[in-house]
Nucleic acid binder design. Structure first.
Lengths: 207, 207
DNA sequence: AGGAGGTTGTACTGATCAGTACAACCTGTA
DNA sequence: TACAGGTTGTACTGATCAGTACAACCTCCT
């Protein structure tokens, strides 16, 4: 019964590597076959619906990793400062060792956008919400916590773009470090919104 | 001499739209032909090297726009606060009216990465440097200005990812607004780097 | 009015795409 | 040892890909 040498989870890991390096669209079946060493037969055996199935599986595996290592600890944190430091370190290690690519972010571009909108949105809201909860635990007001959490996740994602553009991890680590400081800073006050934002938000931003 | 109806710059604009909507990889020649209404003949007449030429032209046009409307004003600014507010507004308008996609950022993924590494890096360094110069004009120290500029560009790029993930402009505008405040804030102090960063940077970040 | 030459649509090429079919294989169980 | 059935490589399909060739066209200049 060929209790195979190849675990499905190994295949998923290999696929994630290919998608990160080449992007989803340009990962053709022949490329996937070549770079993973997994034959067409096995690929369609594990992922009957083809590339869409593969992408789903990869996103699910990545999502599970974040849930376990990042989101859940943030939500369960007693000491928010420690939890946020841990998040920073985990996130830095994770992305540096994975081509500086966030697969969920990559799915917000091109054709993939529609197909994976749901899971992508869930990933980001989970992250932002978990981080906001840790901040609230640390005594920050709900609104301020939500804003800081959103800004931090955006900073990390933008940091990945710059890290890839510069081909440089140090820049990314600097951004992560300052993001961490900003999250923990107990003294920062909120100013008033610039007037042009209020104008934009009220006129058309609720799309 | 058919002094054509179709200016090359119109073609470039149309191409930019297609690339933003579909992504570079999944913009096939037939799709481009269909969505721009420009025939294969004209396409290869204007862009003899095919898609690579088209992408180059699009990036150049976008780069020129930013140079004229964003970078140059920042460098020439006398009043840094006004210049930064202007940048925020221009950037918000630009990306909201263009599918929330930064084409340079999209070129940091997949196969495009290598082909366009140079212009992509130049775009981001130009932006960060111009913004840092405006901040220095406003009396912020060079190192602090460089950090804040980098963080701001990262925040904007991350904001775009979240805006696409959420299908929502209000989130993006909020991020831009708080980024602007952070840039202008005269009081913020810099803390010390978390120890884990120094460890990472010194051990392997200089790749 | 009549070229001249830049511009454009169409048909074609070979390569590569995603997906299917199926025979051969391999391993745990009997 | 032999079977059973999950697993895998290979060959194939029709569709679509990027790029080329070229005849028809259209507009400006004389």
């Amino acid at each position: 019964m060929a209790r195979t040498l190849l675990e499905r989870s190994d295949a998923v890991r290999a696929l994630a590597g290919v998608f990160r390096r080449r992007g989803f669209e340009s990962s053709s079946l022949s490329v996937i076959q070549q770079e993973t060493g997994i034959g067409r037969g096995s690929l369609y055996h594990f992922f009957p619906e083809g590339k869409a199935d593969m992408a789903r599986a990869v996103l699910e595996q990545v999502g599970d990793w974040f849930e376990e290592r990042i989101f859940s600890p943030l939500r369960a944190a007693h000491d928010s400062a420690t939890a946020i430091e841990a998040m920073s370190q985990e996130v830095a290690d994770y992305f540096i060792s994975r081509e500086r690519v966030c697969l969920f972010a990559s799915m917000t571009l091109g054709e993939e956008q529609d197909a994976f909108a749901g899971v992508v949105r869930a990933y980001f809201t989970d992250w932002v919400d978990a981080l906001a909860e840790a901040l609230r635990t640390g005594g920050i007001s709900p609104q301020e916590a939500a804003d800081r959490a959103l800004d931090a996740v955006a900073a990390i994602q933008g940091g990945l773009i710059l890290a890839r553009a510069y081909g440089d991890d140090a820049t990314f680590l600097g951004i992560i470090a300052r993001t961490e400081q900003r999250l923990l800073d107990p003294t920062r006050e909120r100013g008033t919104e610039p007037s042009w934002v209020r104008r934009r938000v009220s006129t058309r931003a609720v799309s």
